[in-house]
């Protein structure tokens, strides 16, 4: 039996269905919203409705965009022969923040994960193969998460793209800049050691 009114309970349930939000956090958010002026809550509701109405997938790279194709795919300043493959649209923003990458992207929307019902058909793999098959791409960079699922997806894509003769690369794995070595986790350090390079 719940101690809250049906409206509050419905709001808590809706918010706690979001990732990283537990029931306690959802309760805090609901009570915070109840203390806000009507206009502010309306503003939030409008923003959420507009978000869903105007944001869609880019038909080329499958990141989130309000204009299709997205601004990255249509930019004349991008190197169109390099594709960076990532799992999620948030990964595009992470790489963009570096300001170092000038190529295009391809978002898979996940990685191979049979236990969660995600196979190759559920991911944007076929459109990636199509992009490479259509020509004009000379290098595909894999920037997937360093999980077993991410590694296996990279392996799957490597096998699928090898026949096209393009250069296939992956981002390096190592110790974060500015971090003390003693605080790096062992798996990262082991990989950093395995991928050591010559000092020029």
């Amino acid at each position: 039996m719940t101690i809250f009114s049906p409206a509050i309970e419905r709001a808590i349930e809706a918010l706690s269905s979001l990732p990283t939000i537990g029931r306690k956090s959802a309760q805090r958010l609901v009570f915070h919203l109840l203390r806000q002026p009507n206009e502010q809550v309306q503003h939030l509701a409008d923003a959420l409705v507009a978000l869903k109405a105007s944001v869609r997938y880019c038909s080329m790279c499958f990141t989130f965009t309000e204009q299709d194709p997205c601004t990255i795919c249509t930019s004349p300043n991008r190197e169109r022969e390099i594709l960076c493959v990532v799992e999620q649209p948030s990964d595009v923003f992470a790489i963009e923040r570096t300001g170092e990458y000038r190529g295009l992207y391809h978002v898979l929307h996940g990685s191979l994960d049979p236990l969660r019902g995600v196979g190759a058909e559920q991911l944007k793999i076929e459109p990636l193969i199509e992009r490479v098959r259509n020509g004009g791409v000379t290098e595909v960079i894999f920037a997937l998460n360093p999980t077993v699922e991410g590694e296996v997806t990279t392996h799957y894509l490597t096998k699928a793209l090898q026949p096209f003769g393009v250069r296939l690369t992956r981002i390096a794995r190592g110790v974060p800049v500015g971090m003390d070595l003693e605080f790096a986790d062992e798996a990262t350090l082991s990989r950093a050691l395995a991928g050591r390079s010559n000092v020029q």
Partner: peptide
């Protein structure tokens, strides 16, 4: 950790039956 994950994922694919050959191949490799 890799072995445990790959084993569970591969068993899931085997349970799904035919039609996932190329995926089964990469999980087998892992």
């Amino acid at each position: 950790w890799r072995h445990r994950t790959a084993l569970r994922q591969r068993n899931r694919l085997l349970a799904l039956g035919h039609g996932h050959d190329s995926e089964l191949e990469v999980w087998t490799d892992e």
